[in-house]
Amino acid sequence: MAKILAVDDSASMRQMVAFTLKSAGHEVTEAVDGKNALDIAKKQSFNLVITDVNMPNMDGLTLTKELRGLANFKFTPILILTTEAGGDKKVQGKAAGATGWLVKPFNPEQLLSTIKRVLG
């Protein structure tokens, strides 16, 4: 199954995402903010990155940009989690190189069906 990097500064959201993905048989690595995620990403590859947008130290958009600059993340699907109902975060996310997005609040089923879109 897929190796997934889940990035969120909120422990409850991170736990929920990680638990859901693990229950679906995926291998999940958790990171608490963009900086932490980038450090992890520099050492290993993943099949998918799921990141929150608003985080301390490094936000999800910067993380996405940084990841796209790494050779092994050039084509890795990156999903951003956003609560902003307006489209600007999605546009900014796409500009930063995100594959797609998932609008909060979402439930585990929605999360799984969304990652299916990028993992096949």
């Binding site: 909120s10 959201m13 929150d52 608003n54 609560t83 909060k104």
Partner: peptide, 17 residues
């Protein structure tokens, strides 16, 4: 930003849960 982020996280979590 710090204040916003805290409110934002609470909103995201409360909606999800």
């Amino acid at each position: 930003n710090t204040i916003f982020r805290a409110a934002h996280s609470i909103k995201g979590g409360s909606g999800t849960f």
